[in-house]
Design a protein around this nucleic acid. Structure first.
Lengths: 227, 227
DNA sequence: ATTAGCGTCTCGCATACTGAGACACAAGAA
DNA sequence: TTCTTGTGTCTCAGTATGCGAGACGCTAAT
């Protein structure tokens, strides 16, 4: 293996084990194959993580992500004031549009949902808190991709509207529209989204909900003391 | 520091950092005080965890649990078939009793909520998925304490009823009743609970809901293929 | 103006981690 | 049924890594 990326090689390896288990429970041999570690190293790391509850064994003896991560994930979400500050605005947006709403932040080359409220309709999109999605697809992904490259809303930005829509990108039959929740420097800290089935949102969800999403983003910035 | 508890000292230390941050965001100095590590060590570990998204800096520059934990927590919950298998029985229990219901598993000397449904009443208890609570208080804690020591339901068990109730233990004004979800060997794998304000549950929630909770535990065992 | 405390970084040294290989057992192949 | 292969677990000699005292720059407190 090459030099440590973080300065602590064991942490690099331990997080590779967790990443490998995020996809599915794995036998030791699968873990060795996926991570490239020697069998002794993969075993030692997985058992150490198991002792701390970050990994567990499933009914078939395979390594799986442990219950401690559920508690830590909850605590992580609670420690993000943006998520709790956003809740009133998310509730108002869900009530006004009748569709499911989410708040995402960027995590490397992906986005993670840090708050979610579901539509009362029987047919609705469900993105649970904690869901991790790629940046390449979906309107929120595009908002958060921009965040690393340039400020949203400047003249040079390809995005001249204050919202982005997508139709059938993340999932067939689903459309969404998102707006940036900007920090003091103008960069997108988060993306607020409305999503639902195309048959209700239409193929132009931006026309239908864009103003409401942008207004919700402004309310969130105010509630979080960002503007 | 003494010898490693898990066989990998860095993982022991890294999880101590995460545990310290679970309570609240902390400055580096606070992290040093809480963990007992040298400042250089605490800094190096926190920055390494930050690089992997397990830790982040809040607006004040303090270390806090990172967004990656939300995604891992979600994946951990999804990998527990018991939680998804339990949902129909939890829904039925919530509908029958009108109160909030939860499913807990044991995590060391604590219990973690792996599934939760809330009562439709305005006044209701809220235990979010991922919530981590001590074993010493609350009916579910007692169910899961027993799990390590002896099989629930044997003659030697202090618990002769198939459910346990508590009144005002975890939180003033709240009562709950729980039953064990047992594995093939009779040990409690999980605890299913009904909880609500004392004014609705009365001071004898067991008389009111005990049968329903036990029936739900049986349904969960069947749905999960444990019985 | 001075001192104390903070976060970040360096680098010599001690030790903790690595991984080849052994072992026991189960599963698969002949 | 017997033999072979694959699995999970464990050991231990060697070495690469992580540790922490101390330096540094900056900010806050005195």
């Amino acid at each position: 293996m090459g030099p440590s990326v973080s300065g602590v090689g064991v942490i690099d390896k331990a997080t590779q084990v967790l990443d490998a288990l995020e996809e599915a429970p794995r036998s030791l041999s699968e873990l060795v194959a996926v991570t490239g570690f020697s069998r002794a190293t993969a075993h030692r790391l997985a058992v150490a993580l198991e002792l701390h509850g970050l990994v567990r064994r499933d009914e078939e003896g395979r390594f799986a992500l442990g219950v401690r991560l559920i508690a830590l994930g909850r605590a992580a979400a609670e420690a993000i004031p943006l998520a709790s500050a956003a809740l009133p605005a998310l509730e108002a947006l869900r009530d006004e549009t009748g569709e499911s709403v989410q708040l995402y932040v960027r995590q490397g080359d992906r986005r993670v949902c840090i708050a979610a409220l579901e539509s009362p309709h029987g047919l609705r999109t469900i993105v649970p808190m904690g869901a991790s999605l790629p940046l390449e697809v979906g309107s929120a992904g595009k908002i958060l991709s921009d965040a690393s490259n340039e400020s949203v809303g400047t003249e040079s930005s390809p995005n001249r509207r204050p919202w982005v829509e997508s139709v059938g990108e993340r999932e067939a039959g689903v459309a969404s529209v998102s707006a940036a929740v900007a920090g003091p420097d103008g960069r997108a800290l988060a993306a607020v989204s409305v999503s639902g089935p195309i048959e209700r949102t239409t193929r132009q969800p931006g026309r239908r909900y864009g103003d409401a999403v942008v207004a919700a983003a402004r309310h969130i910035e105010t509630a979080a003391g960002l503007a």
